[in-house]
Each structure stands twice: as structure tokens, then as C-alpha cells.
Amino acid sequence: MKARNKIGAVIGVTFSFLFVAASFQNCAKQVDFASLEEVTLNGGGSDITNGSSNSKPQTDIDGAPVDAKQTLESMMSLLGLSRTDINMTAVNAEINYRRNLLMAQNDLTLVNSPSIIAITSLAGVVCQQAVTKEKKGAKDLFKYIDFAKGPSSYGKLGAINTYVSLVDRFWMRQPSKEELALISQTVDEYFSTLDSAAMSKATESDKLAVFICTGMLSVPDSYLL
């Protein structure tokens, strides 16, 4: 039952992350990418909390998603990974498996559910490489997470601080109040799926780091140029 809860939470939180990113800086509401008329990612967007999205003027999205041969490179760039940091076999296996689902061109209309799933899956593999790298050497991305201990040692604050530092690193800004509220809720949900024994396991710290990293790489701001 716990496992099922955890899977549910992971899926839910992943899409929460989509929600978080789409709503940052008053940029947009959660949208269906196929219906471009409603997408307003560049400052002209609607505030999801006031329910007035349809009454606001629509603007074009300024930018386009990375294409199939820019996705992995972008993820590695955001995480500061080089070829020597990664297990090429694992990463190549994943990118070869997912490439056909990734966007063929820098075209927003090509973003769809399969491509988002492909990006998320690829992000998971790349984030795992980042975690492995940090566990071996100096900590940088995940300095608020102690990989030698379980999540109970650094608690919710460690998770949220990781998120905040990655927002700054990836998106060069600070998280909004709404985003902080959502990430706080997300972390609560995540921790609620762990019992006290799991909270003390070091392996759970790996999973938490991969979880946060994957969620952040899977949102539009991490793949829109």
C-alpha cells in the first residue's frame, strides 16, 4: 500500500512540478500544449489563482523547446555534467530509447504527452548521473542533502533549500511564494510516503535528490529556449 502511495505521490508531484514551473513569475497557467491559443508563457500570461485567464490578451510564446539533439545536452549543461562524469552506456541507452519521442524541431506544437514523458524519463537518468557524481566528489548541486544519511537528518528544509538553489542555478531567479508553497506541499507528500525507517536510510536521500532534480528538468523552463 505504501509503495502504491509512493508511486501515486511521485506521479502527482511530477505533474505538480509542471504546474509549478508553468506558473512561475506569473507566466502561465497549466496548459495543454496542443492548444497554443491559451499558452502565454512570456509575461503575458494569466494568474491561475484569479481564474481570469480567458479574459486576458493572448500573446505568442517567446521561445521554443529544445529539439531531440539538444535535450540531453541541455540537461547535462544545466547540471554541469561532462562526458567523464556520466555512465555513457546508461545515458545512451536511455536517449536512444527516447529520442524518437522527443521534439524533432524547435517547435512548441511538437510538445505533447509522449515527449514530456520522454523528457521526464531522460531527466531521471541524467539526474541519477548527477547524484552519483556528487556522491563521489565535491557537493555542489545537492549541498543541502546528506547522501550519507536519510532524509530525517536534513528534513524538509534540506529538500526545499535544494529546490531553491536549483531554481537559482537553472532559471536564474528566486522561487515565487506560490512555488514555495507548492514545493513545500510536494515535499510533505513525498515524506508522507516514507516510514521512519526509510527516513533514516541513505538510499532515500539519493531518491529524493533524483526526484527533485528530475521534476525540475522536466518542466518547460528547463527545456524552452
Binding site: V66, S74, L78, G80, S222
Partner: peptide, 17 residues
């Protein structure tokens, strides 16, 4: 700089690069 770099290279970039 981030915008210029990302558009010219096609690669998303982190603030620490």
C-alpha cells in the same frame, strides 16, 4: 547573457557555467 547563450548554442545553461 543566458538568453543570448541559449539561443545561439541551442543549449540551456546554468548560472554557474
Amino acid at each position: 547573457a543566458k538568453r543570448l547563450y541559449e539561443r545561439m548554442t541551442g543549449v540551456k545553461v546554468s548560472s554557474t557555467k
